[in-house]
């Protein structure tokens, strides 16, 4: 069985990889491209740790196939900071102590960024329901929600 040759864009870089038909996009990002910032918590789309942007859409990369990335644009956690500049969400996650073990953090950040692009002024309830697909077992969500709300306010003030 020959492997598929996939050409795609990740965080603005053109990349190529080979993958099996059944290989998930998450598996390709981690094990073929060696970008391990995107995490696997379940492999069944239930925890959101593997959240990425695929052509501007928030997806669980464990539920997409590697071959589906052909010709698409992918954004992962590694593409969130711009050079030395952390994204305001990243800064506020540190400032508000919105992480403990940190394993869910990349996925939560990608999902929160997608929310704020869609809705720059979310209510607490909207943030909670948007992030309901991202499990965190450490924080009880309180500081995550506060960090996202504070970032939204900060981005609105500087917009």
């Amino acid at each position: 069985m020959s492997r598929h040759h996939v050409t795609t864009t990740i965080n603005g870089d053109n990349v190529e990889f080979l993958c099996d038909t059944e290989q998930s996009l998450l598996d390709c990002i981690r094990n073929e491209l060696h970008m391990t910032g995107t995490k696997e918590g379940c492999g069944t789309g239930d925890c959101g740790a593997c959240s990425i942007m695929l052509d501007g859409r928030l997806v669980c990369s464990c539920l997409a196939l590697g071959v589906e990335a052909e010709g698409k644009e992918i954004m992962t956690i590694e593409g969130m900071a711009q050079g030395d500049e952390l994204h305001p969400l990243q800064e506020n996650f540190i400032k508000f102590a919105a992480l403990q073990c940190g394993i869910c953090t990349p996925g939560v950040l990608i999902a929160a960024r997608a929310l704020l692009e869609k809705n720059p002024d979310p209510t607490e309830t909207e943030v909670r329901f948007w992030l309901a697909g991202n499990l965190c077992r450490c924080t009880g969500y309180d500081k995550i929600i506060r960090a996202v709300m504070a970032t939204a306010a900060q981005l609105r003030a500087t917009a």
Partner: peptide, 23 residues
């Protein structure tokens, strides 16, 4: 005091290496 954690940047940028991240 509320000091920023030393491993904060690694953990918000995907740099931090967890169990499955060693190749």
């Amino acid at each position: 005091k509320r000091n920023p954690r030393p491993d904060g940047v690694d953990k918000v940028t995907g740099r931090a290496k967890y169990g499955a991240d060693l190749l």
